[in-house]
């Protein structure tokens, strides 16, 4: 990844980057602890999403944060920054 994304284009020997083919990898396996959101407490301020280093938190239909665990590295910034302490880092089942 990173510098090593390239594709062969039509000009001989000319490796190119293509922004329409960009994307990351599933990095959920990096995680040791996963964020668990207490939606009773959550005020939907979305600070967690704003600070999430991976952009792995999006708003759900109710306007509350939802973690895309495929991309969550488990850093815990969301939990640390949550002003109402509604996110706990927990060991995942299984």
């Amino acid at each position: 990844m990173g510098l090593f994304t390239y594709s062969e284009d039509v000009i001989k020997g000319f490796a190119v980057s293509d922004r329409t083919k960009r994307g990351g990898q599933y990095v959920g396996a990096w995680r040791v602890l996963a964020p668990e959101i207490d939606y009773e407490r959550c005020t939907g301020c979305m600070l967690c999403a704003i600070y999430c280093p991976e952009a792995a938190i999006v708003a759900n239909e109710a306007g509350k944060p939802q973690v895309d665990l495929r991309f969550c590295k488990g850093c815990g910034v969301c939990s640390n920054e949550c002003p109402v302490k509604a996110i706990e880092m927990v060991k995942e089942e299984g």
Binding site: G24, P53, F71, K73
Partner: peptide, 30 residues
């Protein structure tokens, strides 16, 4: 190598980078 995960939504910076967990520079880039 596994192909990049193509998300439907176009984002300025996609999740699933090689950056360290908790990296601050991706927050800045976004």
């Amino acid at each position: 190598a596994p192909p990049p995960v193509q998300l439907e939504e176009v984002m300025p910076i996609y999740p699933g980078s090689d950056g360290c967990a908790g990296c601050g520079s991706s927050i800045i880039i976004r």
